[in-house]
Design a protein around this nucleic acid. Structure first.
Length: 664
DNA sequence: TGCGGCGGCGCC
DNA sequence: AAAGGGCGCCGCCGCA
């Protein structure tokens, strides 16, 4: 295998960040500034740099490309588009098959390292100092200047070339300091590129109308806020100011206490959604009395705080002008701890799903009003929020087929534990026993909601805090002194999971103590590889895929020894000298294994199913020709119920439906 | 003016 | 045995 690392620097009038890579690459103003080529082989120190001013790509580089088995780039999705849309047509670059692309950022993510070149290099200590000049050069050369023209200074271009080469050297460094993607990972990455190319069609007129409504509403809210607060608060987003303003106007200690949340044990003043709900509820019940202006302010902030509405804006900015499709929304292994997918740009993974319209007819009624610009139900922001999913639509002449796995993680966790108690739980789930009611009984209550909160909050070693967070969102109230005993009772009734936490933790510790030997917990295997990334703890999931914990080591704290490792998702602070770390206690390991295995199931499903346009962790969305929708529905139902060889004994069940619009 | 940190909010 | 975990985006705010 010979890999050629390439890197484009480009310029454009199109805003890459807001328009996305697909629009950027196809914008007529987009052009190449330079491109670097470096073989990945550490024994091969050739380097090539090409500028468009040299004319067509020289033969020796064309030969180099043709002799390479893979073309690698950091965020190869971007370089692939520049290559296909610009370099092949304008500069004689040879065509490269999709299958021959390789993404080094994806390689960082499968190694559980930060995705960006800069951060991956910092985490690996291969390059410490942030390259401010690089960012400066991008501002100088890649975007139009104030006069609307681009700099063409040869000196600056030469500096950009050097910067481009340096990036490729850094890429070569991090590629060779970490594990390459396996064939399966590479093929899953390619499947993701396919989905990104396909795109998600959005309803442009509806998204545009939504923006008009929300702009008007934001203005109105701002005016009323300023009026109610004498100009102290001028926007609903001024959270610190609003919290201060409100707390100063509360009469009772009890009311003020509702405005504190605890972060790492420290009390913090907040006027977040839960604090607002608590204040309003207590006022309604009469246990506290809110001054009228405070009530007004809280209500206004509630109405304004529908951040999801900004997705309408993203849809319009990112949709292709001709096809109305948003491409490139998914990131393979974007969640590096668990290898779940992430979604960016038009973030498909956090569309509002609660308190939506009960029937699609109600949604269509609102839709008609929106398209006409007529009045829609108040509060306006809530109405728009309800409509957001429906702005995602099938391709022309097609229908959506949506499938949703039932309680996937609640099944995966007991299955992974490979225990009698876990199997009993699976049997109950399969035979339709209501596990929430049962959990309620286990802790001595008939209240099913309490049981639900216990099940959701406790599976990953969550304590009283976790319980409270879930309890609030499900409207469950439990006296403080009852919480801890309830958790203890739940753990007693689910001792298989407590055993599994301890087993995972112990296997991880033993693995680090005994390099290259395998230690099991349930269906999970751990092994420590001392020569990978300063020592990496490998976690093998049942499908053979791995979760990685780089720079793993044993650390002693007040409770004893535990494994700690680099935490990719927390950004290293500018003045820090080591990348942030995390402690791998049993509950956290269990969470990673359950999410990771669910993600493995989804990847497996995606590799078997055609016409996928989107997915949301346990949900798959296809766009299929209308007259084939019934067939695809049956197919998807089968595909989602199919249990791969490696998952024998795991019951899978899905709800699938045909829909004219995306919905919950 | 640009940035990094942080609070807030949405989802599974 | 203490600990929910995993994300991305938006806007504010303080600092350089």
């Amino acid at each position: 295998m010979s890999m050629l690392i390439i890197d484009f620097e480009t310029k454009s009038r199109c805003n890459l960040k807001t328009a996305g890579a697909y629009n950027y690459a196809q914008d007529e103003s987009t052009d190449v500034l330079c491109c670097s080529f470096i073989p990945q082989d550490s024994n091969d120190d050739r380097e090539f740099l090409w500028y468009p001013s040299e004319g067509q790509l020289p033969d020796k580089i064309v030969k180099l490309i043709k002799s390479a088995s893979l073309i690698a780039a950091h965020n190869a999705g971007f370089d692939r588009l520049i290559w296909d849309f610009i370099a092949v047509n304008d500069y004689g670059f040879p065509e490269v098959d999709l299958d021959d692309w390789y993404c080094t950022s994806a390689q960082m993510r499968v190694n559980n390292l930060p995705a960006s070149l800069e951060d991956a290099a910092r985490a690996l200590n291969t390059r410490h100092k942030k390259d401010h000049r690089g960012a400066q050069l991008i501002r100088l050369l890649s975007i139009p200047q104030k006069d609307g023209e681009f700099h063409t200074t040869p000196e600056l271009l030469a500096e950009m070339g050097a910067y481009c080469l340096q990036d490729s050297r850094t890429t070569k460094g991090i590629v060779n300091a970490t594990r390459l993607m396996t064939q399966t990972e590479h093929s899953d990455w390619l499947n993701n590129e396919d989905i990104n190319d396909r795109g998600v069609k959005i309803d442009r007129p509806m998204a545009l109308a939504a923006q008009t409504y929300s702009n008007d509403e934001f203005l109105e809210i701002a005016t009323e806020l300023a009026l109610a607060t004498n100009g102290v608060i001028t926007r609903h987003t001024q959270s610190a100011r609003a919290a201060q303003w409100v707390v100063e106007r509360l009469h009772s200690e009890e009311a003020r206490n509702m405005m504190f949340k605890y972060v790492a044990g420290e009390p913090k003043l907040t006027l977040d959604k839960q604090a607002r709900a608590a204040l309003i509820d207590a006022d309604t019940l009469g246990t506290i009395e809110l001054p009228e202006d405070v009530f007004t302010v809280i209500t206004l902030i509630d109405e304004g705080n529908q951040s999801s509405v900004s997705k309408f804006k993203n849809m319009v900015l990112r949709a292709d002008v001709e096809t109305d499709k948003v491409q490139g929304a998914f990131v393979y292994a974007g969640a590096s701890q668990t290898q779940r997918y992430a979604s960016r740009g038009l973030q498909m993974h956090n569309m509002p799903s609660r308190n939506l319209y009960k029937s699609i007819d109600e949604a269509w009624t609102t839709y008609d009003r929106m398209i006409k610009g007529a009045k829609i139900d108040k509060p306006v922001m809530q109405t728009l929020k309800k409509m957001l999913r429906h702005a995602v639509m099938p391709n022309d002449g097609e229908l959506l087929v949506i499938g949703d796995w039932t309680g996937i993680e609640a099944r995966v966790l007991p299955w992974l534990s490979d225990s009698d108690g876990g199997n009993l739980k699976l049997d109950k789930i399969e035979s339709g026993v209501d596990v929430y009611t049962e959990a309620a009984h286990a802790i001595g209550t008939e209240n099913r909601a309490v049981g639900k909160v216990m099940e959701l909050a406790c599976g990953y070693e969550g304590g009283a805090n976790a319980f409270k967070v879930f309890a609030k969102s499900y409207g469950v109230v439990m006296p403080e002194e009852d919480i801890k005993p309830a958790i203890d009772k739940w753990r007693l009734a689910n001792s298989w999971v407590v055993t599994f936490w301890r087993a995972l933790e112990s296997a991880a510790i033993k693995a680090v103590q005994n390099p290259r030997k395998t230690f099991s917990a349930g269906l999970i295997d751990y092994m420590f590889e001392p020569d990978l990334i300063e020592g990496t703890l490998l976690c093998f999931l049942p499908d053979g895929s791995t979760l990685q914990y780089p720079k793993a080591r044993l650390e002693r704290d007040s409770f004893g020894i535990s494994v700690t490792a680099l935490k990719a998702s927390v950004k290293m602070k500018a003045d820090a000298d080591e990348w942030p770390r995390e402690s791998l206690y049993g509950g956290r390991l269990a969470g990673h294994c359950a999410q990771g295995t669910a993600a493995a199931l989804l990847r497996n499903l995606i590799s078997r199913v055609d016409k996928v346009i989107a997915h949301v962790h346990d949900e798959l969305i296809l766009s299929v020709p209308e007259d084939e929708a019934d067939d695809y529905l049956l197919m998807l139902d089968d595909a989602m119920g199919f249990v791969p060889d490696w998952a024998e004994g795991l019951p899978l069940d899905a709800k699938c439906e045909i829909a004219e619009r995306y919905k919950k």
